[in-house]
Simulated scan of single mutants.
Amino acid sequence: MASTDDADDKAKSPSSPKVVYKDPDDGRQRFLLELEFVQCLSNPTYIHYLAQNRYFEDEAFVGYLNYLQYWQRPEYLKFIMYPHCLYFLELLQNANFRNAMAHPGNKELAHRQQFYFWKNYRNNRLKHILPRPLPESAPDPPAPTAAPLRLPPAIPPTSGPSVAVPPMQFANAPGSVVAKNDTRNSGIDRRKRKKDG
């Protein structure tokens, strides 16, 4: 009986260590679940689903969205495959945006804007990446000179069946910008060679 009293005294004493919960997998599963959830936020349809099912009315869920902002730090950012999720995570901190995403029209608007961003991303990036000459060091453009217009030679009439004029007749004209070995016309040449051969 004395041994149980000693055990109770040790448990009540302030110097006894507290039991600390330790993840069996060192937090890997929690990390993966949070990563997956954060990346799901890049889909406006999923955000619309959350709004329709009133997840954004739950204060604990809104607090969880606030907690998830740690994904914007560089040590976690490198695991994100869909960077739009961070943009939407930032927008979800605003109650007006959360309420607006309950409406299908706003979901479609967000989806369209995301599509146009992806469609034009490369061209928009190149505008900012390619070097531009400084305004003061740019050379003056040469004065325009009128060059004579060269027309292709006329096709002589044939006595046989009528010959169709190729749609790109100006492409092979002398002085033309488009080269004769242009890849756009190479498929036609190959077909002709196959028929002739």
Rank of each mutant, 00 (worst) to 15 (best):
V178L: 04
V163N: 06
I188F: 10
G187E: 14
P167L: 13
P135A: 12
A138N: 06
P131R: 13
I155G: 05
K192F: 13
P166T: 08
N185R: 05
T183S: 14
Q169A: 09
N185I: 10
P131V: 05
A146R: 03
S186R: 13
L149I: 12
F170W: 13
R184N: 02
L134P: 04
L126C: 02
D140F: 12
V165K: 11
A146P: 00
S159E: 15
T145K: 15
R193K: 13
V165D: 09
D189C: 10
P167S: 15
A143M: 11
R132C: 12
D189Q: 13
Q169E: 11
R150P: 00
P153Y: 01
A173L: 03
S162Q: 08
K180A: 04
R132W: 09
R190V: 05
P135G: 09
H128F: 08
A147I: 02
P157C: 03
P167R: 14
K180T: 08
K127Q: 11
V178N: 00
N185F: 10
L130M: 12
D182C: 03
G160P: 03
P144N: 02
T145R: 11
S176E: 00
P174R: 05
T145A: 14
Q169D: 06
D182Y: 01
D182F: 01
A154V: 10
L151E: 03
N185Y: 08
D189F: 08
I129L: 14
P148M: 02
S159M: 06
A173G: 09
L151R: 00
P142G: 08
A154C: 02
D182P: 02
M168W: 14
I188R: 12
P133N: 08
S176Q: 01
N172C: 07
A138M: 10
P144H: 03
I155Q: 07
S186E: 14
N172F: 05
A171I: 01
P157S: 15
L134K: 11
D189N: 15
P142K: 07
P139A: 14
N185E: 02
P161I: 05
